[in-house]
Write a protein that binds this DNA or RNA. Sequence first.
DNA 1: ACCTGAACACCGTTCAAGT
DNA 2: ACCTGAACACCGTTCAAGT
Lengths: 187, 187
Amino acid sequence: MRLVEDNDISVLTMRRLAAELGTAVTAIYWHVGNRDALLDLLVDRLLEDMGAVPVTGRTPRARIASIARQWRQRLWEHPHLIAVAHERGKTAAMFVPMQAQLATELALLDIRGDGAATAIGALQFHIAASVVMERTASRGPDSGVTEPSAWPASYTDTTLVRRLSSPVDYSAVFDLGLEALLDRLLG
Amino acid sequence: MRLVEDNDISVLTMRRLAAELGTAVTAIYWHVGNRDALLDLLVDRLLEDMGAVPVTGRTPRARIASIARQWRQRLWEHPHLIAVAHERGKTAAMFVPMQAQLATELALLDIRGDGAATAIGALQFHIAASVVMERTASRGPDSGVTEPSAWPASYTDTTLVRRLSSPVDYSAVFDLGLEALLDRLLG
DNA sequence: ACCTGAACACCGTTCAAGT
DNA sequence: ACCTGAACACCGTTCAAGT
C-alpha cells in the first residue's frame, strides 16, 4: 500500500515488492497467488478503512452536501488506491458507508425507495467521477487545457477562450454539479 | 488504431504491432521514436476525426442537450481510444469542436465570458466523466454493484437496497445530471 | 509449511550493422 | 533513408527442489 500510495500502481511489480520485502519473488506467489490477487487484497484492505464520515449542517440538504464533500476529500487522500479499486470494479463497495449515511438523511426528507436510489446513485457517480477525472488530469502536461490556437480567429469572446485555455478548477466544477444535483433531487 | 479499438490498449505492444505489420520491432522505432510517441500519434489521429456534431431541437436549451447527448454517443463509439486520450491529458483538445458549438448556443441565451466558460466546463466534465466511468465499470465483474449483504440487516427499505445492488444505468445517471446542470446553468 | 533459483514467455529500448 | 538482429534490463508466472 505504501508503494502504491507514494507513487503509482506501476511501481508495484512483483519483483520490486520482493526486493522491498527482502524475499525471493516466488515467495509472494506462495502467499497471495498472483498479482491480480495481490491487487484485490490491496483493495479489500482499503475498503476496510472506509467507515462513516463526520456530518455537519442543520438541514438535511446541508448535511447531504457535507457528506458528499467529505467523501470527495477522503477519496482524494488516496487517489492511487482509489484508481486501483475503480479499475477492479469495487467503486460501489467503497461507497457503502456513504450510501447508508445518505439514505438516513434522505429518509428525513421522505425520499425513499427508487427516489433514494436515484439520488444516491447520482451523488456517488458525481463524487467518484470528480476524483477519477481530477487524478487522471493531474498527470500528463496538458491536463485538461484547450489550446487557444485551436479556436477560430473569428472568435471574439476572449474571456471565454482564455478561461477554456487555463486549467480546470475541479473543486468549482464539483460544487456546481453538486448544487445542481441537490436542487433537482431534493426539490 | 484497429488493435486498440477492437481490444484494449494493453494489446498494443511494440512487438505485437510489429508482427501485425510484418516488420522487425525496431523498424517502428525508426519511424515513431518510442511507444509514448506512438500513443500520441494515435490520439492526434483520433482528434482529427472530431468535428462538429449534428444538432437538433428548436430552443437553445434543447439544442444544448442534443449536443451533449450526441457527444456522449460519439465518444462511446471509441471508448478505448478515448481512454488513451484521457490518459494522455488530451481530453479538452478532443472537445474543442463541442466547445465551439456550445458557445454559439449559449450566446443566443446571452451567456458569454465567464458564465459560458463555467457552463461549457461543467458539461464537458459531465460527458467525459460519464464515458470514462462507464467504460471502466464495463470491465471487471462487480462493475459498480453494491453487495446487499454489506447493508445492516436492520435496513428495511428493500426497494432501495435492491436498486443499489443492481447494475447502474449510466444513461439515466447521465440524463439526470445533464438536466440538473441545464436547470442551474440556463436559469 | 514456507522459501529458493532456474527457466519460460513476454515486455520496451538501444545500437551497431546491414542494404 | 530505411530495416535488421543481437543484446540489455525489465516484466509475470511456473515448477522442481530445498529446508
